[in-house]
Design a protein around this nucleic acid. Structure first.
Lengths: 229, 229
DNA sequence: GTCTATACCGAGATAGAC
DNA sequence: GTCTATCTCGGTATAGAC
């Protein structure tokens, strides 16, 4: 609708193509030609819609964080306790990482060395996310509801433990022959991570969202862990 | 000693420089010029000592895995039970990740998309590592000594949870102002990870290696977690 | 073994017709 | 807004003197 629809469409196509290419090959490794080809447009179009390759990269990252925010928001809307909020956040985060590994692939590529891009990432997205989780964590920690660790350690434990299987899924496939994104496996993974971080988790004390569509077959290699009596 | 010492020295310097550059910028992002400059030699020397950039990259990765193997071997030598072996492995792994984040930075850059390099990585290093940990894990799991999760999930939970704080340390510094590699913080991190994965961890049931040199000051932001009575 | 010089290619970005 | 053609730069790798 409205004017400029066609232009917006190619812009959106470029952003999505950029997400895929940057996640797979990194900023330097991804070529604007490959991005344009994937988007079905010609290479100079990139410099028409974006000021530079770096500008396209930022648009791609913004898009990925927006997606994550939408899902996290939806998952935490019904929660009433801090504990339920954190648990819902973790579950949404793991599911998102599995479905959209591109976000964490880009993050991990950029977070290992100081750079303009990393500074921008920290300023635009990561610092506030850490502040939010940190406040939640420390509050729960004071009440003894979560494991006794500082928020920084907990933050990277959650992210690393909750995403590496998906950011590294091509590697995981090669070494195990398993498919990491199999739905039951994702749920079991989220269950495990939640069970690890919360102390004395009751069988399932929180908003167990209706999202989980099927989950019929009892997994063989995977056993949903609801540990500790 | 012996002949060829000088040649070996520049070769070693190139490998170490390659480790740093590849970890910081990725395979495509790192330039052979920058590697040569860092090693203090001229760029064409690379193609004299190595067949190609890819060949240098493999040498750098081999070197990093060799370092890890040495430390893991040393840490597990005295252990008598499987439980002690796994715990010592995890502690050695976390310490290594903190001191040598380059290994995990390179790994995570390559493991997100199929490629010749990833295939080589899986064949040369990762598959056997996973097989070893997997056997250990499943055995302990059958005896109820660790959390009830499949080996693949556990493998990536350990690696992701144990390393992301260090692979992403530049990001962590930006968002928290803390120094992730502060020794007490590393130990607390290892303590937490071990406590999470083992069920009902007794205060400290294993070979606590004499390596930990000092550790005097009681940390403020970090409380070494030896949880669960 | 190490240097200088350079070939060769693919990258990002721009010019200007349509 | 989108195309074709092209500029410029930085990359890896090689040639050949020392």
């Amino acid at each position: 609708m409205s004017r400029q629809t066609l232009s917006d469409a190619t812009r959106a196509a470029l952003v999505e193509a950029a997400v895929v290419e940057f996640a797979a090959h990194g900023f330097e490794g991804a070529s604007t030609r490959a991005i344009a080809t994937r988007a079905g447009v010609h290479q100079p179009q990139i410099n028409y819609h974006f000021a530079s390759k770096a500008d396209l990269w930022r648009a791609a990252v913004d898009s990925l964080f927006a997606e994550l925010a939408v899902e996290t928001r939806a998952a935490t809307l019904g929660t009433t306790t801090q504990r339920a909020t954190l648990e819902a956040t973790i579950r949404a985060f793991v599911r998102h990482a599995a479905r959209r590994p591109e976000l964490n692939r880009i993050m991990v590529r950029e977070s290992g060395a100081p750079s303009e891009r990393l500074t921008w990432l920290a300023d635009s997205h990561v610092r506030t996310a850490f502040a939010d989780v940190s406040a939640l964590w420390e509050s729960l920690r004071r009440r003894g509801e979560v494991v006794d660790t500082d928020a920084l350690t907990a933050f990277y434990l959650m992210i690393g433990g909750g995403t590496l299987l998906y950011t590294n899924s091509p590697e995981a496939r090669l070494i195990s022959g398993c498919e990491p994104t199999e739905p039951d496996r994702i749920e079991a993974h989220a269950d495990t991570l939640v069970a690890l971080l919360f102390r004395d988790v009751a069988p399932r004390p929180t908003t167990r969202r209706a999202v989980r569509e099927t989950r019929p077959s009892p997994r063989s290699t995977t056993t949903s862990s609801r540990r500790r009596s």
